[in-house]
Design a protein around this nucleic acid. Structure first.
Lengths: 191, 191
DNA sequence: CCTACCGATCGGTAGG
DNA sequence: CCTACCGATCGGTAGG
């Protein structure tokens, strides 16, 4: 039982890494099996299908981002502080969860219906919440007035390189780099 | 003769679009053939292989970025103005060339050796030139002091969303959005 | 530019 | 968890 659990987790982690490094389509079940010291057919004792792996990874990350957003939105912080918290959320996700950036930004495209539509809806919900905070910040004069969509996508994209840069052997630098990215973006936003 | 030229161009443009939308691995030669109203085998009268398509697209873009960088580096502009020009280069490439962003950032991973190493070298050359300008700008007090690699990757990534956002039916907005992205990034950089 | 076809590999199943 | 195997699809070639 614990062995099964562990093996399933191993498969998910190996899949996450392969999807990130090679992309979903270029990752084969035989390659994934090799990564966890199994034959391809044995994977199906632990998982349902290749797409189920992608699906679980995409929706887990989507819900993490959404619950993070909701927690930030309901605080009594200033809009600028909320935006700082959202930037930190993305920086933390990018450095802590190996899959969050590519799953949320790219690989979800390979989902099939009806999950594709479900995921796009979750992503739109997330963007809507983020946009509302950006617009409230502009109306309050806390941040520079600009097209909120442009700011949103620029912020989200700007963090996308972190996932494949991060050197595991230099964990000490991670906090400094996150701080510098945050400073850069916040300086660009404030009025 | 002109027909052959045109068909080859059609194939490259369709391939570029498919690689961008679905990724290199998920794009099949049969699907590409369908996009240009041909059978898969007929593609090979115009092109050498699937990887040749990717290779040409990747290296053409790499050389465009490098020659753009070299032209900017040899001007007598301030370092900040050079950085602004580099940002404009990326914004122009993202909105004018359908493939530049994904090829330069993602799909090159699917190249095989020796071209993979060649491409990585070109990319490193580009990064080196960009980094030198960023560091000169810091030393001259023109831009805020920070880790130059962090600034570089954040700038490059921040433009990555433009390629799949751009609505062809709203070309008028493109210039305004490019301007706003540039302003956002420059405000984050200046001292 | 097509039909016909190649060997390789794909995701996944049967059966033990 | 494995061996053996399935039909489908892959990139690409032969031959006309």
């Amino acid at each position: 039982m614990t062995t099964t659990q562990t093996k399933k987790q191993q498969i998910y982690e190996a899949a996450a890494r392969l999807f990130r490094d090679k992309g979903y389509s270029a990752t084969s079940m035989r390659h994934l099996a090799e990564a966890v010291a199994l034959k391809a057919s044995s994977l199906y004792n632990h998982i349902g299908s290749k797409e189920e792996l992608l699906r679980d990874i995409c929706f887990e990350n989507a819900h993490k981002y959404l619950s993070g957003l909701q927690a930030i939105a309901m605080t009594r912080d200033s809009n600028l502080d909320k935006i700082k918290s959202l930037i930190d959320l993305h920086l933390d996700m990018a450095t802590e969860d190996i899959t969050s950036v590519t799953a949320f930004n790219d690989e979800w495209r390979h989902l099939s219906e009806p999950w594709l539509s479900d995921f796009i809806q979750l992503r739109k919900d997330y963007e809507k919440g983020f946009l509302e905070i950006l617009e409230a910040g502009m109306n309050a004069g806390e941040i520079h007035r600009a097209d909120a969509h442009t700011l949103l996508y620029t912020i989200l994209s700007s963090i996308r390189w972190l996932y494949d840069w991060r050197k595991p052997e230099k964990p000490m630098d991670t906090e400094r780099i996150k701080q510098q990215i945050s400073n850069f973006l916040v300086r660009g936003l404030v009025n």
